[in-house]
């Protein structure tokens, strides 16, 4: 009897614990939604999304979020254009060209790179990468998008490698052996057989890495600067969406003030962008795993 009671009591205790994860999500949506709603009472949505000047703290105020989005996109595309080829090549190398010994050496190093806190990468960008780059481009600003994009690439390529490696290893041996029997070299098998077969999971890896790069905060705050400019060069100081939120919170925020609400409007945009990418990435990942 007591045993049965414990069984029921425990069951419901566990349900309460599970509910906390659901409540967290709901609260995030409610808070971002509520503060953004108040913000959009004062600033039209169209001006926010398509305005080209972001000056929320100084008069005359202007709330066009495009400069922040462009700043974020520079980091995102700059970093993925390094992280994708590098991450993919290491994954191909580990799964198609070497023994498991090499993987057991390389993987721990990648795990260490993932485990290093982002503020450390920010410090590294500011005090090592930027001075190096400035030897090549003397006109470069101390705070610049290039240096931040490089360290973000170092942060996200292990994720690309590990997801792609899993994808390649899940492919059946017969696929490779068929091609070898026809006289293909390992390079041809890797490029013409393995990569196309794992294409959707490579895509998923890229989307998940992009989402990580969008949300990256400390490295870009330290290395990329705080000037929201609408430009295309990588040598100048920029500001990302995340770095703006940090900049505002470093000052004294008045609750209910317009600065406080801009944080949540930018946060909502950030939330929606990463949510869509995570859902897409996880979906493709699972779908192709099932079909294999």
């Amino acid at each position: 009897m007591i045993s049965k009671f414990i069984d029921h009591a425990l069951h419901w205790t566990l349900v309460v614990c599970v509910a906390i994860t659901v409540i967290t999500t709901l609260v995030v949506v409610i808070i971002l939604g509520k503060e953004s709603y108040l913000f959009f009472q004062e600033v039209p949505v169209f001006d926010f999304l398509f305005g080209t000047r972001w000056e929320p703290l100084l008069e005359p105020k202007s709330f066009g979020v495009l400069p922040l989005v462009v700043g974020t996109m520079k980091i995102v595309f700059g970093s993925i254009s390094i992280a994708l080829p590098v991450g993919l090549m290491i994954a191909i190398y580990m799964s198609e060209f070497t023994s498991d010994n090499v993987r057991s050496i390389v993987k721990p190093f990648l795990e260490i790179l993932v485990g290093i806190p982002t503020v450390v990468y920010g410090y590294f960008a500011l005090t090592f990468v930027t001075p190096m780059l400035r030897k090549l481009f003397p006109e470069m600003n101390i705070f610049n998008a290039a240096s931040a994009a490089i360290v973000v690439a170092i942060m996200i390529f292990p994720m690309v490698t590990s997801l792609c490696d899993d994808a390649f290893r899940a492919l059946p041996r017969s696929l490779r052996e068929g091609a070898f029997a026809l006289g293909a070299t390992r390079y041809e098998v890797a490029i013409q057989i393995i990569m196309p077969a794992a294409a959707s999971r490579i895509g998923a890896a890229v989307v998940l890495a992009l989402s990580r790069a969008i949300g990256e905060t400390m490295a870009v705050t330290l290395a990329a600067g705080a000037t929201p400019e609408l430009s295309l060069t990588f040598l100048e100081s920029i500001q990302t969406m995340t770095a703006y939120i940090v900049q505002v919170s470093l000052g004294d925020i008045q609750a209910g003030g317009v600065e406080y609400m801009t944080c949540y409007a930018v946060g909502l945009l950030l939330f929606l962008m990463t949510l869509v990418m995570n859902i897409l990435g996880n979906h493709f990942q699972l779908k192709s795993r099932v079909s294999q």
Partner: peptide, 14 residues
């Protein structure tokens, strides 16, 4: 899964 992928700064806003 989505919460695990949410940027940490959004937890800060929360």
């Amino acid at each position: 899964g989505n919460l695990a992928g949410m940027p940490s700064i959004l937890y800060g806003l929360l």
